[in-house]
């Protein structure tokens, strides 16, 4: 690993990466990296609206991993303090636009439902996304869900372009690897 570090560093820097995190994601990681991200945007004179959008998508994507990643770090099925393995990248394109990419394993059984939602969101305009968000907000949360099922809709609403995703079959039979990218 030590031989690859400089190459990795250069690659990430060249891609405009501001933050890259891989590992178990907990609420304290969300708070810690979130605070650093806000600080960085403040120093760079990012407008309040853009900085709020970046922070909001960052929180939703991180909490998505905390709530739904198939890769649990602690084996006990406890409700709180879950540590789920995942990856998040926050970067800035050469034109100044921020982007956030998350990556984590999901259960094969959940794949169809999540892909269906992502495909629907991709085709919706801002008004349709707003209507769906408000409709879902009035409903009771889906069984077994800690979130409100609203996180992805919120991400799509705050992004300036349709969100993109890729799904890769994982070698471990029961999971797929899902990456979601939002550009702000």
């Amino acid at each position: 690993m030590i031989e690859d570090m400089y190459e990795l560093y250069k690659t990430l820097k060249n891609e405009g990466i501001l933050f890259c995190f891989i590992g178990p994601i907990s609420q304290s990681v969300v708070e810690g990296i979130g605070a650093a991200l806000r600080h960085k945007m403040e120093l760079a004179d990012t407008t309040i609206t853009v900085s709020q959008r970046v922070f909001s998508i960052f929180v939703e994507q991180m909490q998505n991993v905390v709530n739904y990643s198939a890769e649990k770090v602690n084996k006990d099925e406890q409700i709180d303090g879950d540590l789920r393995f995942g990856m998040i990248v926050v970067g800035q394109k050469t034109n100044g636009q921020f982007y956030i990419v998350s990556g984590n394993h999901i259960h094969k059984d959940d794949t169809e439902r999540i892909m269906g939602l992502l495909d629907t969101l991709k085709q919706m305009d801002k008004e349709e996304l707003k209507a769906l968000y408000k409709e879902q907000r009035k409903l009771s949360p889906p069984e077994g869900s800690k979130g409100a099922g609203l996180g992805l809709i919120e991400t799509a609403r705050k992004a300036s372009q349709p969100i993109e995703y890729t799904l890769t079959s994982s070698v471990e039979g029961r999971h797929n690897f899902l990456s979601i990218q939002a550009v702000i």
């Binding site: 929180v59 939703e60 907000r137 009035k138 409100a148 609203l150 996180g151 809709i153 919120e154």
Partner: peptide, 16 residues
């Protein structure tokens, strides 16, 4: 000043 999507649901529930 800021709330995430699941808090948004809780607040809607409060207002209801």
């Amino acid at each position: 000043s800021y709330f995430n999507s699941s808090s948004s649901k809780a607040l809607m529930n409060l207002f209801d």
